[in-house]
């Protein structure tokens, strides 16, 4: 692996990756990476409206991993809460910032997710806005991912991309990309 790490970096640079994280996520880690991301954008003098959007996408997408990754580890004896595995990548390429996140999901959830995201994919901004308001009224206060996806679709400068890669009989890898 150490031999390959430089080629890894080269590939990262080619993709315009500003930061990426693979492993166990927690709320605390999300906050720290989010802070660093903000600082980086400030240093690069990104305008604040765009900065807020990139930050918002990042938070919403990582919280999706935290809530919905099918790859969670916890130890009840330690009482330290659970950790969710996933990947997040923030980059800049072809005039757009992008945030990609991915995590394992159960295969049986693919259909439901595809339906949800396809509906959003085909809506224009005005439709997304009224759908957002409608769902916000309906949805009980939970983890709020139904709303999270609509939020992502609304903020994304291009329709959000999503993909499923089969891992084994039970699981697939779900990834989602937004543009700013």
């Amino acid at each position: 692996m150490s031999n390959n790490l430089y080629s890894f970096k080269e590939e990262y640079d080619k993709q315009g990756i500003l930061l990426s994280f693979y492993g166990s996520f927690s709320q605390e880690l999300l906050v720290e990476i989010g802070d660093t991301l903000k600082n980086r954008m400030k240093i690069e003098a990104l305008n604040s409206a765009k900065m807020t959007r990139v930050f918002a996408m990042f938070i919403e997408q990582v919280q999706n991993i935290i809530h919905y990754s099918a790859e969670k580890i916890s130890n009840e004896d330690l009482n330290s809460g659970s950790l969710s595995n996933g990947i997040v990548v923030v980059g800049y390429k072809n005039d757009y910032y992008y945030v990609v996140c991915g995590n394992k999901i159960k295969k049986k959830d693919i259909e439901k997710l595809t339906d949800k995201l396809t509906v959003l994919h085909n809506m224009d901004k005005a439709e997304l806005k009224s759908f957002y308001k409608e769902q916000r009224k309906k949805e009980p206060v939970t983890k709020g991912a139904g709303l999270g996806f609509i939020e992502l679709a609304r903020k994304s400068a291009k329709p959000i991309d999503f993909d499923f890669q089969s891992i084994d009989e039970q699981f697939s890898f779900f990834s989602l990309k937004t543009y700013i």
Binding site: A56, I59, R136, G144, L147, E151
Partner: peptide
């Protein structure tokens, strides 16, 4: 509020 996530938005509506 400078920034709030989608579940906070639901909380504000409530």
């Amino acid at each position: 509020l400078v920034y709030f996530n989608s579940s906070s938005s639901k909380m504000l509506l409530d």
